[in-house]
Design a protein around this nucleic acid. Structure first.
Lengths: 234, 234
DNA sequence: TATTTGTTTTAGACGCGTCTAATCCGGGGT
DNA sequence: ACCCCGGATTAGACGCGTCTAAAACAAATA
């Protein structure tokens, strides 16, 4: 049986792989999880023994298929919980992440099924992140780009925002930038500031590039890979 | 911050105190939690250092007020979860205990509040156990007796059944013995078997004395201390 | 009172997950 | 080709929660 901590490492490695692709460095994992690099080295050693990651010393680490499956399972729990809390317990958009992090390791398969059923098997969570399906096949996230990769004049639709930072989330929520929102890029300052116009509210918002990098968007005519806008938000 | 494990010990000591009164012995705690006595001795030492229990060496242990408050908090979580799972996620009577045990340590105060609100602040869980109030004052369980303490001819109403054993719970559920049920004691065998007639279903059931001890009952005209039959069961 | 019996505690060990301090690569610059 | 520096790993420690084996104790019995 895997410990909660191991699951956290696998989830972290998965997320980092999604962002920068493998291999994932020791220090990136350490930073992501708030641990020291030696701690990570030691833990990664154990994950390797268990066949959950592949490692090349001094190079970095990559999930095996088995490791990825575990990560997807945890992620499924996390995102189903986020959706459930939002939908049925009146949580706001920015409050759910922490709660889901605490619960994701401790729910049974039965609970997972019932929550999924109560939600009607949603495909995305309230942040727009895809919820891995029950069979844990890797979701496909092609067709999405980072808002920060777009230039002035581009019009895009928001698909996902990162759920890692509650303040950021709060801010975006205030600004009306949520999954489904259409935005125009109106200005890019040289010092890493992106200004956008939110089409729905006619308001302009400036975002630091660090935030723009966490916002995934698609072309106006495209599809967020897990299109299913039935999950509401507060 | 208290660990999950410490919370489990406090909860166990609380339950044992409810059953047999203080002091609670090392071996009873060990038995209850499935640990060895030396493990319990060591843990109890830590709880004592933190002021959560009072201990007399070789005698036993008793919760301090602070320790009791922690136990009640955990118990509140547990029982709210049991009620919620039964009410909103379609769990059956006998399935909820394990799930609640896994989750009780990991929900936030916010979650507790929202679940309580979603249930309409119930006073008892599906097994009939009183849910400690939000202010964590000790619930009063006077007026209840054990079914095993009654004699032939007595008529009583079931208030609570223990939630610790799923099979037992399953059996009682089948037998129609649930909180609110009225039963007559029709026979007591010398080898520890109690036979009762369930008034509602007109059926007779025989129960080993060990089970009869876990069923709390009241006089037909009395009140289960947390009377509030709005929590249903499956 | 002396002994036996059963429970409790002490002693010592182990794995997990974490840390700090020290050492060890390896790639980039001179 | 050499050195240097930043990131990675090893070494060694610690607290937690657990165990087994051995010692200490209390209470009942002879």
């Amino acid at each position: 049986m895997l410990s909660d901590v191991m699951e956290d490492y696998l989830k972290a490695i998965y997320s980092l792989q999604m962002e920068h692709g493998p291999p994932v460095s020791t220090s990136d994992i350490a930073e992501y999880l708030g641990k020291t690099p030696p701690t990570v080295t030691s833990m990664v050693g154990k994950l390797e023994e268990r066949g959950l990651v592949e490692r090349e010393k001094y190079k970095g680490v990559e999930l095996t298929d088995e490791g990825e499956t575990v990560a997807l399972e945890v992620l499924r729990h996390h995102r189903l919980l986020e959706a459930y809390l939002t939908e049925h317990l009146d949580y706001s958009w920015s409050e759910v992440h922490e709660e889901a992090d605490a619960l994701e390791h401790h729910i049974s398969e039965e609970f997972e099924r019932r929550v999924a059923a109560a939600l009607g098997n949603p495909k995305v969570d309230p942040h727009g992140d895809p919820i891995p399906s029950a069979d844990l096949t890797p979701p496909d996230s092609s067709g999405l780009s980072m808002l920060s990769d777009h230039g002035v004049g581009d019009t895009v639709v928001v698909c996902r925002v990162s759920d890692r930072n509650p303040e950021e989330l709060e801010y975006l929520s205030e600004a009306g930038i949520t999954p489904g929102t259409t935005i125009d890029v109106t200005d890019i300052a040289p010092f890493g500031m992106v200004t956008v116009r939110v089409v729905e509210t006619e308001s302009e918002q400036s975002l630091p590039e660090s935030v723009a990098r966490t916002i995934r968007v698609r072309e106006p005519d495209g599809d967020c890979q897990g299109e299913d806008e039935e999950v509401s938000m507060a």
